[in-house]
């Protein structure tokens, strides 16, 4: 791992990768907290896969139709926002088959992606990088985009912390207080969509959900307020992406997969630790209760 830090000074691509991981962690911690507490991780999964369709279409248009100005990222952002708006609009209609449509968007996204990739010559080898991320290929332009996405997420979090908390905690009550629940729910979905696009650059489509939920779940165990959960999960996410990069560097392992497995290990360890702690705590209190019983007799 020491070699990683030496190489960090020498290679700009490694520095870019490090910054990309840290920048993505900010959005991940903030939006992940909303996604987990509002229980829309499946929607996040659906949006993440719809992104693949947008990327495939954009790549096709760029390579085959020579739309040089169009990058896969544009396609990704467009597809993610489109999926978010569609799901938000469906909820506003009170459609009871919400989960069906969410699953449909999921698979249609992949299908479109695969179809366009098939039609685009010479692209197939790059598919792996969109599935599992290509953090070491992030350039300055992508870093700028990550900064912009972070700014949007943080601005929204600062401005609408209270109504978003209310919408996540008790939607009906928020509506009664005159909060435009539909607006804030759709805003939440759009922020989720933008964050997913951010994270795809770090860990890829397949891994997005793990990174947006697991660090947040760990942070949730140590938080009493929503902003604490956001801060803690952003810090944890930053640590995990950095550690994933460092660990995978020398053996030349795929960064995305390494990061996710590291995240899973931390999640499992904390869950296990919490379970043990709870059991011991319970045993301690029952022993204490038994002692009190003993004193009485």
């Amino acid at each position: 791992m020491g070699e990683f830090f030496q190489s960090l000074a020498a290679h700009s691509f490694l520095r870019n990768a490090l910054f990309a991981g840290l920048l993505a962690s900010v959005a991940c911690g903030v939006v992940g907290t909303w996604v987990v507490t509002r229980r829309i991780t499946v929607i996040a999964g659906s949006i993440a896969h719809a992104v693949l369709g947008g990327m495939g279409a954009a790549y096709y248009l760029r390579v085959v139709k020579h739309w040089e100005w169009l990058s896969p990222l544009h396609g990704a952002v467009a597809a993610a926002l489109l999926a978010a708006l569609a799901i938000g609009w469906m909820k506003s209609r009170g459609d009871e088959r919400e989960d069906t449509v969410i699953s449909a968007i999921w698979s249609i996204g992949i299908a479109i992606g695969v179809l366009f990739l098939f039609l685009t010559p010479g692209y197939k080898t790059d598919l792996m990088s969109y599935l599992f991320g290509n953090i070491v290929m992030v350039d300055a332009g992508a870093l700028r985009l990550l900064v912009i996405l972070d700014a949007i997420v943080l601005l929204a979090a600062a401005a609408f912390y209270n109504p978003l908390l209310a919408v996540c905690f008790d939607e009906e009550f928020a509506r009664l207080r005159g909060i435009n629940v539909q607006f804030f729910y759709t805003l939440l979905l759009c922020l989720t969509a933008l964050t997913i696009v951010t994270l795809i650059y770090v860990v890829g489509v397949v891994m997005v959900i793990a990174l947006i939920t697991l660090p947040v779940s760990v942070a949730g165990r140590f938080s009493r307020k929503l902003w604490q959960m956001m801060l803690l999960s952003a810090l944890l996410c930053g640590f995990l992406t950095t550690a994933g990069l460092a660990i995978s560097y020398q053996p030349d392992l795929p960064v995305g997969a390494t990061t996710i497995l590291l995240t899973a290990v931390v999640y499992a360890a904390v869950s296990l630790g919490a379970g043990l702690h709870q059991r011991m705590h319970r045993r301690a209190s029952t022993t204490a209760a038994a002692d009190r019983e003993g004193d009485k007799t």
Binding site: T37, R39, A158, A159, F160, N162, P163, L165, A166, C168, F169, D170, F173, A174, R177, G178, I179, G220, R221, S223, R224, K225, L226, Q228, M229
Partner: peptide
């Protein structure tokens, strides 16, 4: 709700104050 929602008593009571004007800040 899930009983792990990170929210304190005062956070919840403050939700009763929402809706007085545009809910920003």
């Amino acid at each position: 709700l899930d009983t792990s929602f990170p929210v304190t008593a005062i956070d919840i009571v403050l939700m009763g104050r929402l809706g007085n004007g545009f809910p920003a800040g």
